[in-house]
């Protein structure tokens, strides 16, 4: 057993003395000279830091104008873009830049079923959002993306078609099969500050809406617009046969792998009577209808 004075010393050391921490002496430089492997690792680390900063700055330089070529030299010539992609450092910081939007723009998603009836899926923020808006809704971002990137519309439409059909086949949806997906751009102008001040504010749901059909996509013609066999098997549904008629075939996306290349490439078979996906353009562009103030979805 320890002697009392020894115990007291231990108690002082363990319970009273400040917790030990490595500190720099007041007269010591914070940079210690390299020791051991640091002789080799420090220059390498320095190069890495310089390269990282160069890649980030080169990536953020404007793609047009005076810095155009330097951006290319750093991004492509020095492999900056590849490094940033590999390390998940691709970045843009356009936060409300160059201007915040002056319009509220939403993409309304409608499904036209086999009977010709159109159903609003309530995917757009205007019909989906419940106030107060406390928990972040990723659908909102995706809906904004649809308004900005037309290439996303067929992908989104294909999902809508697949999901509709799958729910229907599983008995979760009591509707006719989906024929096409219609995208309607719904927007309104935010009143300029002077006008808002005159009226002492406004209610955003009472602003005049502008509807514009920006795309129609037929489910039978969309790549991946049908339920694939992998999902059918998962839910115990009948598989699609290899040879099906129009509307009864899964249209795949053409993807060449090393194996398909070695065996004659991707066979881009299409069922008879089906329009090629490239031709399956939106049926009506820019059809504009203006509705009254505060009008909600309606059946466009």
């Amino acid at each position: 057993m320890a002697a009392p004075d020894e115990t007291s010393a231990t108690a002082r050391r363990l319970l009273e003395a400040p917790l030990p921490a490595e500190r720099l002496a007041p007269d010591a430089s914070p940079v210690s000279p390299p020791r051991g492997w640091q002789v080799y690792t420090r220059p390498l680390l320095g190069l890495f830091i310089a390269y990282h900063l160069l890649a980030v700055i080169g990536h953020l330089l404007p793609g047009r104008g005076l810095a155009e070529q330097v951006g290319q030299i750093v991004g492509r010539g020095l492999g900056g873009d590849r490094y940033l992609r590999l390390s998940s450092n691709i970045q843009t910081w356009k936060m409300f830049a160059p201007n915040p939007h002056r319009r509220n723009i939403h993409m309304r998603v409608l499904v036209e079923d086999a009977s010709g009836q159109r159903w609003n899926l309530r995917h757009d923020v205007r019909t989906r959002r419940r106030f107060p808006y406390l928990f972040y809704d990723r659908f909102g971002k995706l809906n904004r993306r649809l308004t900005q990137d037309p290439a996303m519309l067929p992908v989104y439409a294909a999902w809508v078609c697949r999901d509709w059909e799958l729910q229907r086949m599983r008995g979760l949806l009591d509707r006719e099969p989906a024929e096409r997906v219609v995208f309607v751009n719904v927007s309104n102008q935010i009143p300029p500050p002077a006008r808002a001040i005159e009226t002492n504010g406004y209610h955003p749901r009472q602003l005049r809406l502008r509807h514009r059909i920006v795309g129609e996509h037929a489910c039978a013609e969309l790549p991946h617009g049908q339920v694939p066999n992998v999902l059918r098997v998962r839910y115990g549904l009948p598989r699609k046969t290899a040879r099906g008629g129009p509307g009864d075939r899964f249209i795949d996306v053409p993807l060449e792998t090393w194996w398909t290349r070695a065996h004659g490439g991707v066979r881009r078979r299409r069922p008879r009577g089906v329009t090629p996906p490239a031709v399956a353009r939106p049926r009506a562009h820019g059809t504009t209808t203006v509705s009254g103030p505060g009008e909600e979805d309606g059946s466009l």
């Binding site: 939007h101 939403h106 959002r129 808006y133 909102g140 809906n143 935010i190 002492n200 504010g201």
Partner: peptide
Amino acid sequence: SLEHFIRFPEQIIVVT
């Protein structure tokens, strides 16, 4: 004032 981000529609009055 953007409808995508606002927490309450009534906040527009405060913003104004």
